[in-house]
Design a protein around this nucleic acid. Sequence first.
DNA 1: CTGGGTGATGTTTACGTCAACATCTGAAGT
DNA 2: ACTTCAGATGTTGACGTAAACATCACCCAG
Lengths: 348, 348
Amino acid sequence: MDSVAPTESPTPTRKRLGPSIGDVARLAGVSSQTVSRVSTGAERVRPETRDKVLAAMEKLGYSPNHAARALRYGRFGSIGVIAHHLSRTGEFHTIDALVEAARKNGFTVNLIDVESPSSDDVSVAVQRLTHQSIDGLVIIRAETATPDTLQLPRRLPIVVSDSRFIGHHPAVSTDQRAGIAQAVRHLLDLGHNTVHHLAGPADSSPAGVRIQAWQETLTSHGRPVPEVLRGDWSAASGHAAGAKLLDDASVTAILCANDEMAAGFMRAAHERGLRVPHDVSIIGFDDIPLSPYLWPPLTTVRQDFSAVGTALMDVLFRQIRSGQPLTDHRTTIPTELIVRGSTAAPRT
Amino acid sequence: MDSVAPTESPTPTRKRLGPSIGDVARLAGVSSQTVSRVSTGAERVRPETRDKVLAAMEKLGYSPNHAARALRYGRFGSIGVIAHHLSRTGEFHTIDALVEAARKNGFTVNLIDVESPSSDDVSVAVQRLTHQSIDGLVIIRAETATPDTLQLPRRLPIVVSDSRFIGHHPAVSTDQRAGIAQAVRHLLDLGHNTVHHLAGPADSSPAGVRIQAWQETLTSHGRPVPEVLRGDWSAASGHAAGAKLLDDASVTAILCANDEMAAGFMRAAHERGLRVPHDVSIIGFDDIPLSPYLWPPLTTVRQDFSAVGTALMDVLFRQIRSGQPLTDHRTTIPTELIVRGSTAAPRT
DNA sequence: CTGGGTGATGTTTACGTCAACATCTGAAGT
DNA sequence: ACTTCAGATGTTGACGTAAACATCACCCAG
């Protein structure tokens, strides 16, 4: 670990924190070890003594210093999470599940965001986090960073949900290829000649995976592959893409790389007086909570973010417990096509 | 602090962690203090010595033990955040802004969720968090907990965005009363005789505030106050409410306590063949990213969650810096009515 | 009444780091 | 040659905690 900067300390001066175990011990007239015993629960302490200690704690407003405990134990009870942009629905739900799973395992979650998905930024985030107090690291999305550009501390248990890290770190991800294939087939089965694709941004790896799966599925069915459209995951970009694409009457089916873009696309269709799904079928990806309540309800590919979060925590926890890395571990969470009202046979 | 449980340790045994500053010092042939100087940046160290040390660090894969630093400094560089249910849009955006603001101030965010919004659960969350390594605490929503039921460690800087804690802890919140009043007036101005209200659950304090503001606004305009409907913030509950309410032809305008419920309500209207806004006007609350892309685009009251998050961090940071609590501090973030396509004059 | 527990409590020490102070080296000024 | 001083580096100690070990009081079997 090179320069190891001073973590731009929030407050440079040293402060006297709350009362210590020693202060409690003095007040209670016992040794600090007895206070420690009370504070850690169990142990054999006479009820009478325990009460004295508890009273002293209460009086002084004592609470244990976690830094000291962490130092003593060599553990922090916390895991680090790096996410690219928190407001993305998918990452958010994953984090939600992760936090819950962490709590159930007695851990807390230390969250850090990455402003732009550049490699530098991610490195800084990693450095900041690993200088924090964590027992393990979850990388939800590292975007442009690669296993090589990322200088991770050795011995730190890691799990990743970014497909490009597979083989380098244990990974958990949804089966996006299968999901996309299902979606494309669904539209072809309905009678559409081909399927257009509104993809995520070029620097996003899941966007790339989805494009590839879409192309392959079309090709394997002998269908023409239209030019791919690019969005940035936002509903606004979906709306813009709709404005461009929907003047072309040959477009009967569009697969959007996430539900937000699908919502934007759908609004563009409404604005043009096109009926969904009669004039154009729209299918999304993710199945966000609002998808069933769009109009018409959105057909989409459900990703089980909650399962991803749980699995991430599970894999990480196993490494923490054993002290052994699971380098080539790989969990794949299946996706599911949810057919709602936004897809139908093309008008003839 | 009563019983102070043992934080159900994730792994009870002590492990030898990575190499320590001493190992690096030995390998580099210098004292540990010199290594410390290099590791903390600045200080006067001969370039030649510095290089030796850096090489040794690299070789051993050294990274500083944050627990030891935190113990030494009396600071953690981390703030705790308690949120009720992460998947709620509002809390999520607040957290997003909070994380960003924290990063800019050199802090990291320690997140903990609360399964059910019971007082007990929140207390447990607080205890778990304060036993973690935090310099300050943000309570996004404490729900049923009150300032009295919550045993907070003394000396811990706190900021809250839950209105019931005002006067007990510094608070930051959006001006929901004003937002609701704006929304109601907007509908009355359009010519609606009265406005129905789909509220949040009974145990939610913001839901209560919104109900009250809605009632007051109607009353002050001399309008009848319809019976309040209850939802649970979810789109599904909005849909169910729509199913109940929309058979009553006298209902021309509905104010939903959040956008998700408004989306569900709107779908219910579509399903009945009612046109929005011609047959019924619908207005939401929050302005989530998808609101402009519902069909029709949703008129709503925008809450600036990002500003809330930034302000929370700001208030907390000031306390951390000064060491002084800001007990009766209060920041109110204004709301803004965003008129889109889902509201119009009632049909005559 | 005595030796061998057993349970309650106290003492010591180390976790890894860094501030404060101590020491050392060498160069510049007289 | 002899301070004087500044910069580089080393030594000591303390942050708060809990494990390991030590001690002490007391009870019971023989």
